[in-house]
Design a protein around this nucleic acid. Structure first.
Lengths: 145, 145
DNA sequence: TTCAGGAATTAGAATAATTCCAATTTAGCT
DNA sequence: AGCTAAATTGGAATTATTCTAATTCCTGAA
């Protein structure tokens, strides 16, 4: 039985959904599962393909619905880089993204607390930032694959 | 005659285009003009409306073509925030953006050199960043309009 | 346990931003 | 003026995403 969540993740998942009064359905679990499974910042399209291998009847709308739900429950994060399709990421720690313009691959980049504080301090008086997004693009040596 | 470029901007414009072997057409000048004129981070749609007031025959495709050209000549910058339409910005200094989730307005946020260096230092060995994007979203007090 | 009612899923249509395309116009050279 | 490549044009096409209305599925009260 592939893509069953580990009991740890299953717990996180159930709890997060129940807290919002939402149902932990098999589609939602599966979408969450494939995102945890291969942390390659998949697009909705990628996720759809992977989910179909486990739950063949799943529709595109459902994938989008599930993703929206998971994002709303803070189980996964959206990653938007330029105009390219939205990607999804189970890494919830504060981190930036690096996109290789050659391969299209996206890498997580840790942000240390000092730098994070300095960035947050850029926001002027009278503005209240709830969200911060930092991304880089450029080239990655192929040894980083 | 509205939206004629100041002689300073006209020079910048002509030079930047000629350097790439491109023609400084009236459509390109007008698109550049409206972006300089009202620095409110307009979308292609906004720009189209404003350009039509000066050059009524202009098509949408032309606006997009001109924008691409201007970006390629480093005369304006694209600003992408989440999934919302691309916006355009004539501020070429390193700066971040703040989007007010209530009004949708976008504000420039200066980045000091120290913070900029620290951010650039986040990029790990083996990665070469050509581009850095920092954006915030949250709420802005209405006195910031 | 059943069953009512809300929640979730589904297929397919609709939308929004952007890009593509083929035809026409224009600008810059000789 | 006339040639040629570049730019513009209108409309069709594309892409990612959202919407809609119908169906199916859970859950908890009887």
């Amino acid at each position: 039985m592939p893509n069953s969540l580990s009991s740890f993740n299953r717990d996180t998942f159930n709890t997060a959904l129940r807290e919002k009064g939402l149902r932990p359905t098999k589609q939602r679990a599966c979408v969450y599962g494939v995102i945890l499974d291969k942390r390659d910042h998949p697009t909705a399209d990628d996720i759809y393909d992977r989910v179909k291998r486990h739950l063949p009847g799943t529709s595109f709308a459902t994938v989008y619905n599930c993703l929206e739900t998971l994002v709303g429950c803070d189980l996964v994060r959206q990653v938007n880089m330029d105009r390219s399709p939205t990607r999804y990421c189970p890494n919830l720690t504060p981190h930036a993204h690096f996109r290789c313009t050659q391969s299209g691959k996206i890498y997580d980049v840790e942000i240390d607390n000092d730098t994070l504080s300095l960035m947050q301090a850029l926001v002027p008086e009278g503005f209240e930032a709830e969200n911060l997004d930092l991304s880089f693009s450029g080239t990655a040596k192929s040894s980083n694959n």
